[in-house]
Amino acid sequence: MTVYNFNAGPAILPPTVLSQAQEELRDFAGTGISVMETSHRSKEFEAINNEVEARFKALLGIESGYRVLLLQGGASTQFAMIPLNFLAADAVADYIVTGVWAEKARDEAQKIGKVHIAADTAADKHNRIPTQAELQFSENPAYVHLTTNNTIYGTQWQTIPETNGVPIVADMSSDIFSRPFDASKFGLVYAGAQKNLGPSGVTVVLIREDWLDKGAKNVPTMLRYSTHAKNNSLYNTPPTFGVYMLNLVLGWIQEQGGLAGMAEYNTRKANIVYNAIDNSGGFYRGHAVTDSRSQMNVTFNLPNQELEKQFLAETKAQGMLGLPGHRSVGGVRASIYNAMSIEGVEALASFMAHFAAKHG
């Protein structure tokens, strides 16, 4: 039986990447040992570390002005690390709240400094992304924070909002490198690797070099971005296997045609599943409004909870794993990140049509 992995994270990895990791597991780069046993101070690991930054920048089409940092602690640590470094006592940061992870980022920032809510979609159960006209920025914010994709509710920013030159800080954990983006709009981008870039354990940060100079100097050493930039992300022992896997995935993305190729592929996959919802005669009800739909996480409900339980049991029996919605909202969630195949989404869409015809 073919297994299709729809887990929201840790999520599916490209099969070719897993095969290469398997081949090299006990003998990395001719060293005779695993990359997990290789010193992070060795020339072999340093080459991986450097290649990650080079590949990351190449995929974005940037040569200078930014650093790529490989950190630990997940995106959740970034929620506090960002205001610790860049939210001064006399400043305000603007937060756009569009889901649970945006709420968590806001909550951490409020423990550290002054926060202004530029928009909040909680009243609509986070089923949409706010329009540009709805955004009410403060007079002179230190930065504007947003979450580009919301895994729980299945919404995604289709275009990055205009902020009148104020640097944007973005949590891209669940749609990083699923499509191109203009790095010049961002002061800092962060993403846990475990959805689109690799296994859990490593967090990628893209940060503007002029921002590094503005970071607070009284922050604990491990929580300063400048610490990791000066030490090429090797201040302490990094998650070496996670970095190695991240490098392989970045190489795989390059082979798929880069970010433009991934965007085309992801649009095709998302359309297959959304068409199954839209053509079901109302049997399936998507959570997100149409113009806010995520290409990474498709969330929907069936007519009642009993049918949802049956749907989830039958899909699991057929090898479709990870489809239950987040515990806070229920329903069904198909996470179709970069590595999900066309065959996987076609299998899901086919089952959805069959199930709706039988029970509708």
Score class of each variant (00 low, 15 high):
S184D: 15
E103I: 05
P141D: 00
F45D: 01
K125P: 00
T38N: 08
I160R: 02
Y274F: 13
L13I: 12
V115Y: 04
R55F: 09
F241Y: 12
A313V: 06
Y190E: 05
A193I: 09
H228A: 06
Y4D: 04
N236R: 14
N7K: 13
E264I: 07
V3H: 08
Y265N: 10
A58D: 11
Q256H: 10
E306P: 00
R128L: 01
E264Q: 09
A270L: 05
L206D: 01
T163G: 07
T159I: 08
Y225A: 04
H354C: 07
T163M: 08
A88Q: 10
L135T: 01
L312G: 05
Q132K: 01
T131N: 04
M36E: 11
E37S: 14
N85E: 10
E139Q: 12
L223P: 01
G282S: 03
N275R: 10
E162S: 12
Q305L: 10
V345I: 10
T163R: 06
G65A: 09
Q194P: 00
G30V: 10
N196Q: 13
G192Y: 02
I272P: 00
K114T: 12
P324R: 08
S34T: 07
T290H: 09
A29L: 14
I82L: 11
T267C: 07
Y4N: 05
M262I: 11
G165P: 03
P324E: 11
G113S: 02
M340Q: 11
A122P: 00
G61K: 07
V329I: 14
K111A: 11
M320V: 07
G113T: 01
V329K: 09
G73K: 00
S233E: 06
I207A: 03
A191C: 09
G322S: 10
G282D: 08
T290Y: 10
A8F: 02
S42R: 07
N196F: 13
A118I: 02
A75W: 00
S335A: 15
K214M: 15
P199Q: 11
S39E: 13
Y190F: 15
T299D: 01
I342G: 05
G201D: 03
H326R: 06
G251Q: 05
A29H: 08
V115D: 04
R179I: 08
D94A: 08
T16H: 14
G286T: 04
R285T: 15
V3A: 14
I277K: 02
A353Y: 09
A339I: 03
L248K: 13
G282Q: 04
L312P: 03
L60P: 00
A89F: 04
V144S: 00
I253W: 03
Q156H: 05
Q20M: 12
G258S: 08
G9Y: 09
A21W: 11
I272N: 02
F79A: 01
T147I: 02
A80V: 03
A88K: 13
M172I: 04
A170C: 11
G187S: 10
D94T: 07
G9N: 07
T315H: 05
L246Y: 02
L18V: 15
R128D: 01
Q72E: 13
Q78Y: 03
A89S: 13
K309S: 12
